[in-house]
Design a binder for these strands. Structure first.
Length: 793
DNA sequence: GCCGCGCGGGG
DNA sequence: GTGTACGCGCGGC
């Protein structure tokens, strides 16, 4: 038979070392494709004859091959040993690396297969159908021919699951018993929901396993599924003697280094993790995120008294559980997690599972190792944990406090990749004979002598991205979104190359490379700032790859014209692309690097967006009143109502200081979770003390629970705190001065240049007055102090 | 300012 | 599984 499928997961069968490719066909069938006979191997550089002899006589030995590979600046004789068992490779690696360099000996076996066959995300397969009851897919076949085919995106089966289990656990148990498992299955437009409930927990778990195999999902999702549902399911199944065999090969999930889960044939995708990466919400709870994205939150169930709820209103709990799975899948879709990962899988040429549950070094490996192999360049092992000194980063221009009008922002297109390409920065070109000299001192060969491997890869990716962008511009609707996703994935991939160059954890890492990239970048941006200043523009700010120009324009239109003109002229002069990104009006800064807030007025589609950088209000120990006050202040400033902002700030701090009874106490509550007590070295942590007090008070506390409190006396050390129990009247008195001070500190970070105006509390604590502040800033900029308040605001 | 620790989500 | 977590804020020094 023959078919086309998108590869979702790759793995291998241990018994007979057979490669398994799992996927879905263009006509919607789930497939297991098996490749027999692929052998693991590793390379030894110039091994002694005795080592070769030893290997030849090893029971694992299959065959050997002589090669010439480029390694550490020259071509070397390399012996490639093929062996029988992939899991033995680490053993030989450790044994021989004392005697000679060992290459390519830490590449997962399924990756080795994909690289060697040079497979992309979609393949055409010819083969014989097999009847193998172990596999739960629609089709199982033995591959006789496999090659790449045009990309397609089959609809995938997504199963969202959620468990409800007891908090109170029995002796010797890791977790409380599971009451129910809810699910929502989505396959295209089809949706199926349900819950598995049984008073006999063992039967419930067996039913669950059966259900998963029957539904045969490609992707299993959940909210914090990695850290909660999976470990609990695994642990309860172990206790009750149920095999957690939900893999497409009948295998069980295994945990990869305390975080991700691997399962043959299915991708396990934690939506919480995606929410963090994509959305960066203030709070990461499902309830908050769902309300934010879908306008709908979780049902009302008291999770802390789940046992009671389960016995009193079982149906409500089941509904609640199913609703969670529904909200999770809706968030998953709204954030387009699957699409994003599919795009990344397409451009990195890796299975969906590897981009969902793996580090970014995989991306670079996938592209770089294939090309290195083709060019006979040796692939070294990943360096292990030698702490390299940190590479100096990007240039950040000093910013003078103020409120600026019509600010034009230019930025370098793909700054670091551009530097790598322009200056041929690569481990293959780093050489004392190089004629390209980085400001950091490293030397690189000229392209005409040897083009670097990484620069050539980036050049190809850049060209591809430009082509994709053209396709995007000439298309509409879904097709346009598709191309936009692809071009964005290419951008991420390109930046990843610098990321691994600068990381101490990668196989091709070298500090000289990373430092060369950033030094060239600093050189380039400061040169750009000089050019602008020579033309009479005032550059007010810049960071790594961007410059902010006070345009002096009378209107947005004028600023836009200026931006376009400068971008064209400067790109020509610098030989790299400098893009006109946006216009902000106004832009506010209190004079600290990496911190500003502005209202975007161009481009049109972002018009009205408030951009806040560096003033992240999200602190784990913050309270509502604090973040509300900050948001209000930003709002007023960007309406150019500085006086209003100051008045509001003074007012709120004063109100808090005098303990205004109209302030709801909930807005002072600070929350944090608490682990089991034995995991803390210090006894004085506020959250731990609150937990202990809760127990004393006869309230529920279980490790991992979130506790809330109000600070009642911060003068004592450690500060005194009183538990806050939702629905119970708070009896203590808040330390109003503490709260007022926290709010004042927060607001002063923004209004620093005005702080003498709102020093309600600590007038004598040596804070700078506005005048001295202006003076200092002026001196820092080498300006005379003819700066007036007016020019700031 | 650096370093190491703890949190976040889930019941 | 030929592997080795993510990013941020805080407190201690």
């Amino acid at each position: 038979m023959q078919l086309r499928m998108r590869i979702l997961v790759a793995s291998y069968r241990r018994e007979d070392v057979t490669i398994e490719l799992y996927g879905r066909t263009d006509d919607g069938m789930s497939v297991t494709a098996l490749y027999y006979g692929f052998k693991p191997y590793f390379d030894l550089v110039e091994p002694e004859d005795s080592i070769v002899e030893e290997m030849k006589n090893d029971p694992e030995y299959f065959r050997m091959e002589e090669k010439t590979l480029w390694y550490m600046g020259r071509n070397r004789r390399v012996v490639r040993f093929f062996i029988n068992s992939p899991w033995k490779v680490p053993e030989y690696r450790e044994r021989y690396k004392k005697f000679c360099p060992v290459l390519a000996a830490d590449i997962p076996f399924h990756h080795r297969f994909i690289y060697d066959m040079d497979l992309g995300s979609c393949v055409y397969i010819e083969g014989e159908e097999e009847r193998d009851p172990r596999y739960s897919t629609d089709l199982v076949l033995r591959i006789s021919k496999i090659e790449n085919t045009d990309e397609f995106n089959p609809k995938l089966k997504v199963l969202s699951i959620d468990i409800e289990n007891a908090i109170q656990k029995e002796k010797n148990d890791e977790w409380g018993r599971i009451f129910t498992v809810g699910y929502t299955l989505k396959f295209g437009d089809k949706i199926e929901q349900g819950a598995i409930t049984d008073d006999d927990e063992k039967r419930l778990l067996e039913e669950f396993v059966k259900k998963v195999r029957e539904l045969d999902p490609d992707v299993i999702i959940g909210y914090n599924i990695d850290g909660y549902d999976m470990p609990v399911l695994q642990s309860r199944m172990k206790k009750l003697g149920v095999r957690f065999s939900i893999g497409r090969d009948g295998g069980v999930p295994s945990r990869v280094q305390g975080r991700f889960w691997r399962l043959h044939g299915r991708v396990i995708s934690d939506v919480w993790w995606s929410v963090k990466k994509i959305m960066h919400p203030k709070s990461e709870t499902l309830n908050y995120v769902a309300k934010e994205l879908l306008g709908e939150g979780k049902d009302n169930i008291n999770r802390l008294k789940i046992e009671e709820e389960w016995s009193n209103r079982r149906d409500d709990v089941i509904r609640y559980c199913i609703k969670d799975t529904y909200l999770t899948v809706e968030v998953f879709e709204r954030l387009r997690v699957l699409d994003r990962n599919m795009f990344m899988s397409t451009v990195t040429r890796l299975p969906l599972d590897d981009v969902t549950n793996g580090g970014t070094s995989n991306y670079v490996d996938s592209i770089l190792i294939r090309r290195a192999d083709r060019l006979n360049i040796g692939v070294p092992l990943t360096a292990n944990e030698e702490k390299e000194e940190k590479i100096p980063g990007g240039y950040v221009h000093t910013i003078v406090p103020g409120l600026y009008s019509n600010v034009v922002v230019l930025d370098f297109k793909s700054m670091y990749p551009s530097m790598i390409m322009k200056y041929n920065i690569c481990f293959t070109t780093l050489s004392p004979e190089g004629t390209i000299v980085a400001p950091s001192g490293a030397r690189f060969l000229d392209k005409s002598v040897r083009e670097g491997l990484i620069p050539s890869i980036l050049r190809d990716l850049m060209e591809k991205r430009d082509a994709v962008k053209r396709l995007m511009k000439s298309s509409t609707g879904e097709e346009r979104e598709y191309w936009d996703g692809i071009q964005n994935a290419i951008k991420v991939l390109m930046n990843t190359f610098y990321g691994v160059m600068a990381s101490p954890f990668y196989r091709f890492t070298n500090v000289d490379l990373g430092s060369a990239v950033t030094s060239f970048a600093r050189d380039t941006i400061t040169r750009l700032i000089d050019r602008l200043e020579k033309r009479g523009f005032r550059v007010i700010y810049g960071d790594t790859d961007s410059v902010f120009i006070e345009s002096g324009a009378k209107s947005v239109k004028e600023a836009v014209e200026l931006g376009s003109r400068l971008s064209a002229e400067l790109s020509r002069e610098e030989g790299v692309t400098i893009e006109f990104e946006k216009v902000m009006d106004p832009l506010f800064s209190h004079g600290a690097k990496k911190r500003y807030a502005g209202k975007i007025v161009y481009p049109e589609d972002a018009k009205g967006t408030i951009l806040v950088r560096g003033y992240e209000t999200r602190r784990t120990d913050s309270f509502d009143l604090q973040s509300e006050a900050l948001a209000r202040v930003f709002d007023l400033i960007l309406q150019r109502d500085i006086e209003g902002a100051i008045n509001y700030s003074k007012d709120i701090v004063r109100r808090v200081l005098r303990g205004d009874p109209s302030i709801p106490l909930e807005k002072l509550v600070i929350s944090r979770s608490v682990k089991s007590f034995d995991s803390y070295e210090q006894e004085s942590l506020a959250n731990v003390r609150v937990a202990k007090k809760l127990i004393e008070m006869g309230e529920t506390f279980v490790p991992g629970m979130k506790v809330s409190w109000i600070v009642t006396n911060s003068r004592k050390s450690p500060q005194e705190v009183e538990p806050y129990i939702d629905g119970t009247e708070f009896r203590g008195t808040p330390d109003w001065e503490y709260y007022a001070r926290r709010i004042e500190e927060t607001l002063n970070r923004v209004l620093e240049s005005l702080q003498s105006e709102i020093s309600v509390i600590s007038k004598s604590s040596g804070q700078r007055s506005l005048d001295t502040f202006v003076e200092q800033r002026a001196e820092e900029k080498g300006q005379k102090k003819n700066v007036t308040l007016d020019s700031f605001f």
